[in-house]
């Protein structure tokens, strides 16, 4: 990923977010009894300032002559992890089987990340670690702290 391009995309996204906030703050009340500034004042000021600084940053990035490559190490793994986390939380939220879901999630990640040894050994170590961690979670969060998952 190019540093310049990445920055510009990020700035564009932030500008978009602040534009949404700015747009929304116009539907807020401007004045209320006994209050010199209303709930819309701060959001308006900040989102406008944010848009301005984004433009400034955009210009300074353009002016910079040198560009560098941003290393996204093992980006494939990043995507796997994020997708796995999303699937995990969805299962947790909609199926409710927290301990089963988290066990599978943990096992999947451990197995995926590990590239040492045979397949069998990888499965065993991943299972072992998942087991210990989930038991720890059950004991500490579930039993000691009475968290209802």
């Amino acid at each position: 990923m190019s540093y310049k391009k990445g920055t510009n995309v990020m700035l564009l996204l932030i500008t978009l977010v602040s534009a949404i906030f700015l747009y929304q703050s116009f539907s807020l009340k401007t004045l209320t009894t006994n209050q010199p500034i209303g709930p819309d004042f701060f959001p308006k000021v900040i989102s406008i300032l944010l848009i301005i600084t984004c433009i400034i940053s955009f210009i300074t990035t353009l002016k910079k002559t040198e560009d560098r490559k941003v290393e996204l190490e093992k980006f494939k793994f990043v995507i796997y992890t994020v997708v796995a986390a999303i699937v995990f939380v969805m299962c947790w939220q909609f199926l409710g089987l927290f301990y089963v879901c988290s066990f599978i999630f943990l096992f999947a990640l451990l197995y995926l990340y590990n590239n040492n040894g045979s397949k069998f050994k990888k499965i065993l170590t991943s299972l072992g670690i998942s087991l210990v961690v989930i038991l720890f979670v059950y004991a500490v969060f579930g039993k000691l702290l009475n968290v209802l998952f």
Binding site: G96, L97, Y99, V100, F103, L124, L127, L131
Partner: peptide, 23 residues
């Protein structure tokens, strides 16, 4: 070691399944 691990896992799996079905 492996067999111990496998047995513990199987035990745990049963417990988990039992728990989840009971809930």
């Amino acid at each position: 070691k492996c067999s111990i691990l496998v047995i513990t896992f199987l035990l745990l799996a049963t417990v988990l399944v039992a728990c989840s079905s009971s809930t």
